[in-house]
């Protein structure tokens, strides 16, 4: 398997601001790769560096083994689905989708046919004569996708493409994007600040902060075995245990993470790992979130709503499996 995109010590500085700082990254061909991070963490700049809208201040970028620095966007076999879709308002849907073919000199008849096929792919047949202004957000998103895919890019870049959609549509599009990526076998690079989206869709995830990659790995790696407090905190609500507490429950004197769903009330007769005082209960439908006070630390536990639940103020024995407590190597 070849490398689709390679960053070697890439930096992009704006004056004193280091949007991307000495970054190394490898994205494999055919991979669905997510760049995850809070706003201002450098993930979008990273995407723009791949697209060619930005040039690195330092370092090298390779796209399928070829140097990409100094190569303008229109010479790169890379296409982008923009955050707000960036559809051309003066062109109808067909002409928007066929734009890439038009500028390459494909004749009108052939590009209309291909554009209609591309619209079929994103389930928008029959919308060709409408203007972007007459479409809903979800439909515009599909047009933007068809417009990018028609050029058969080697890498498809998606900049928070689902951000503007409502929850239900977003979930539907997540599934469709995923299956589209599998069937077309195109490398997808996906920028998002939504950890749920990144974990559910991507083959691999890179978590960004302050222009650096904090951790890159499979969703399971990132979620179950975060290397740092930042990753544990950003990727899902995790309990962070300070070294003193970790030591008191029998671990090394280091920071550790403990997922809320890994915590449970120790059944009678079973050894307890710690005791916690119930501070609050929040009903979530299928489950109940319980805030616990453990040795002065506030931990969260999630229990199924059907079982017997402790009352506020009750002192409960706590249990977790040996491998649930994840000690973070990167944190002292």
């Amino acid at each position: 398997m070849s490398i689709a995109v390679r960053f070697q010590q890439v930096s992009r500085h704006y004056g004193a601001v280091r949007a991307v700082d000495d970054l190394n990254l490898e994205i494999a061909e055919g991979e669905f790769f997510a760049l995850l991070g809070p706003s201002g963490s450098g993930k979008t700049t990273c995407l723009r560096l791949i697209a060619g809208f930005e040039q690195p201040t330092a370092g090298h970028i390779e796209i399928f083994g070829e140097r990409a620095e100094g190569v303008p966007p229109y010479l790169r076999n890379v296409n982008t689905v923009f955050q707000d879709y960036a559809l051309f308002p003066h062109l109808n849907v067909i002409d928007n989708v066929a734009f890439g073919l038009m500028v390459r000199g494909v004749d009108a008849k052939a590009r209309r046919k291909q554009a209609e096929e591309a619209l079929e792919l994103v389930k928008l047949s029959g919308f060709g004569d409408r203007k972007p202004g007459q479409l809903s957000g979800g439909q515009r998103q599909r047009v933007a996708l068809a417009r990018a895919l028609i050029n058969r890019p080697k890498v498809l870049l998606l900049d928070e493409p689902l951000g503007a959609l409502d929850l239900k549509l977003r979930e539907q599009m997540q599934d469709e994007l995923k299956s589209l990526q599998k069937s077309l076998n195109i490398t997808f690079v996906f920028v998002t600040h939504d950890q749920g989206e990144a974990l559910s869709m991507a083959d691999r995830v890179a978590v960004f902060n302050h222009g650096k990659i904090m951790q890159a790995g499979t969703p399971e790696d990132i979620y179950q075995r975060p290397h740092s407090r930042f990753v544990a905190d950003f990727v899902g609500s995790s309990n962070l245990l300070p070294p003193v507490l970790v030591k008191s429950v029998g671990g090394p004197e280091r920071w550790a993470s403990l997922r809320p769903e890994a915590l449970s009330i120790a059944p009678e007769g079973q050894p307890e790992r710690a005791r916690g005082k119930v501070a609050a209960l929040t009903y979530l439908g299928a489950s109940v979130r319980i805030a616990l006070d453990v040795g002065g630390e506030r931990l969260t536990m999630v229990l199924p709503a059907r079982g017997t639940l402790p009352a506020v103020g009750e002192d409960v024995p706590l249990h977790w499996d040996d491998d649930a407590l994840h000690v973070m190597e990167d944190e002292k």
Partner: peptide
């Protein structure tokens, strides 16, 4: 919007084509 010009370049339009097909009509 600036991203329309970026989108044109992204889709393979050379600067002259971007001007002709996107900037000028708008």
């Amino acid at each position: 919007p600036n991203n329309l010009i970026e989108a044109a370049a992204d889709l393979g339009a050379r600067p002259r084509q971007g001007f002709r097909f996107v900037i000028l009509p708008l």
